[in-house]
Computed example of a mutant assay.
Amino acid sequence: MPELPLWSFPAAQEITEVLEWRTDVLTSRAGEQRIGLRPRPREIVTFRHRLDALGMARAAELARAGFAGDWHVPLWHMALQPNADLAQGATEILLDTGLSDFRSGELVAITVDGREAAAVSIASVLADRLILAEPLGLQLPSPAVAAPRITVAPIRAGVLTSAIEVTRRRQGDGTVTASFLLRDAPDLVAPVLPTYLGRPVQTDPSLVRRPLSASLRRAVEYVDTGFGPVVVEPLGDVFERSETITLKAQGPFARHSLRRWLWSLRGRQASFWLPTWGRELQLRAAMTSGSTLMRVAPVASLQAYVGRAILLEMPTALRFRTITAAIAEGADHRLTLSSNLGEPVSLTTRVHFLTAMRADADRVEIQHGAVASEVTLPVVEVPA
């Protein structure tokens, strides 16, 4: 089998990664059932390369020779810097392999000072290093290279999904854009998040700092005969809150955790808790450590409180509870929680509603910049 061509050009601008699942959502009046039809996503990555005249010519000739075939594609959005300098003759690269997608028996791309990458075969992958199948040689431009000058990225097989675009600013300066559909998607493990009632709780601090937009609705049908009043007929019993959230991850660990969390959603299939961060429940009295009674300013009807999950921002940790009963007490409402907090609750404690949500799209687009990754995700409320 002939060796696959290497798309060796380093990405000089923002990288776009698209993850596509497929979920069948069966709706009913009381809720919905979600069936995952594609357990692992399709991955499409788009690279933009800033190249000189020779680089643009090489890209054009590579495309001409192998456009319809498979390629070896360095995944620059998963690239890492080694933890130690590299020298010619070395057979190990020290780095945290758990933060990327290195695989035994596959290839790794090595680039120095942003030049074109060279591929090296991986013999085995350990937690803190890559063991190479052969010593480094011509992959390095000098006998020893400092770690900050080196970038190491995993390589996966892929196919081009669209035409390669070349935009020239001048004769010797241009941008080449290429999109690849990657093969053999990994099976990433969900990150460790706080959980409540069997669901993970998304408490990423970047979500708190980003603007949240929300819409509130219920499925209805408007009946208009044209001769009288318009009649509204409910089509479902579930009230829906939909939002668009933005998450930002900076640094290799946070970036990898973000991708793992998106993987765990499996498109529209899995649900999670999302705090409103709206401080809806404002305390009217402090609580003792053993109390389950919370006195708050009225914000809803008494029946609307029951069964709602809440989040309390305690000094030691975030606490999650469920409201089991509600009564009026003078001008306030007194809520009964599922259990006590185990520590005093001050009057200034922030309390938010928790909403069970799922992604409202099977297609997720991640923008990978030089120092951070960002994703904007539509989510919709599901029955708790």
Rank of each mutant, 00 (worst) to 15 (best):
L302Y: 07
G307P: 14
F353W: 15
L354V: 06
V299G: 08
R319A: 09
A297L: 11
P344K: 00
S346D: 13
S339P: 09
L347F: 01
R295L: 10
L302V: 07
L312G: 05
T324K: 05
A304G: 05
A317Y: 14
P298G: 09
V345S: 02
A325Y: 03
R321P: 07
S289E: 14
L302R: 05
R350C: 11
S289F: 11
S301G: 13
R321L: 06
R308P: 08
V296F: 04
L312R: 02
L347A: 02
L293K: 10
N340D: 14
L318A: 15
Y305M: 00
V296L: 03
P344V: 00
M294S: 00
T349E: 14
S339V: 08
A331L: 15
T316E: 15
G342H: 07
T349I: 10
T336R: 03
V345N: 03
T322C: 10
S289M: 06
L318V: 11
H352T: 08
M314K: 03
L341M: 14
S291E: 01
T324C: 04
N340T: 02
I327P: 06
M294T: 01
S338K: 10
R350Y: 12
T322P: 08
S339M: 12
E343H: 08
A309G: 10
V296R: 00
A304Y: 00
T322M: 09
P344F: 00
F353C: 10
L335W: 05
E343N: 06
G307A: 12
A297I: 07
S289P: 03
L347H: 01
A317R: 15
Q303I: 02
H333V: 13
A286W: 00
G330L: 06
L337F: 02
R321I: 02
I310V: 15
L318W: 15
V296A: 03
T349S: 14
V351Y: 08
R319E: 14
G307T: 14
P298Q: 09
L335F: 08
S301F: 02
P298C: 12
A304D: 10
A331I: 13
H352V: 05
S289G: 02
T355D: 15
H352W: 10
G330R: 01
R319M: 11
T316K: 06
I310Q: 12
D332Q: 10
L354E: 12
E329Y: 03
V345E: 03
R308E: 13
G307V: 11
T288E: 14
A300K: 05
T322A: 07
G330A: 03
L354Q: 07
T355Q: 15
M287C: 02
F320C: 13
F320K: 11
R319W: 08
P315T: 12
N340Q: 09
A309H: 02
A304K: 01
R334L: 06
T316F: 12
E313M: 05
H333L: 12
T355N: 14
P344A: 01
Y305C: 01
A286C: 01
G342L: 09
R308A: 11
S291I: 00
T336K: 01
A309Y: 00
T348S: 15
Q303D: 12
A326H: 07
T288R: 10
A286T: 03
Q303H: 05
S289A: 14
H352D: 15
G290T: 14
A331S: 15
E329R: 02
Y305P: 01
L337N: 01
F353M: 11
